[in-house]
Amino acid sequence: MSLSDEDVRRMARLARLALDDGEVTRFGDELGRILAFVDALRVAVLEEAPAALSGPWARTPFLRDDRVEEAGHPELYQAQAPESRDGYYLVPRVIEP
């Protein structure tokens, strides 16, 4: 079983991953085999499952009080940015509709 090139390219497009033709072929084969393997689950007959996980997940979640405790630090944070100017992050211009 193998995933079609078209499926692979559709996933790559959704995930914004540039793939070369070799990768498309290889991923088609590998993903096909992985999906065939996890199909064991797809065909498994399951009884009614609990609505949610229990154990560490079974509790009322923590909610934060509404307080401002942090500021932005554009200079510090934008030191990591490939491109920024005047406090803005920059990307190639997006063509708006």
Binding site: V8, M11, I34, L35
Partner: peptide, 12 residues
């Protein structure tokens, strides 16, 4: 990439 692709597939 392989895992991103699988993940994208199973959520699509």
């Amino acid at each position: 990439k392989r895992r991103i692709m699988i993940g994208t597939y199973v959520l699509s």
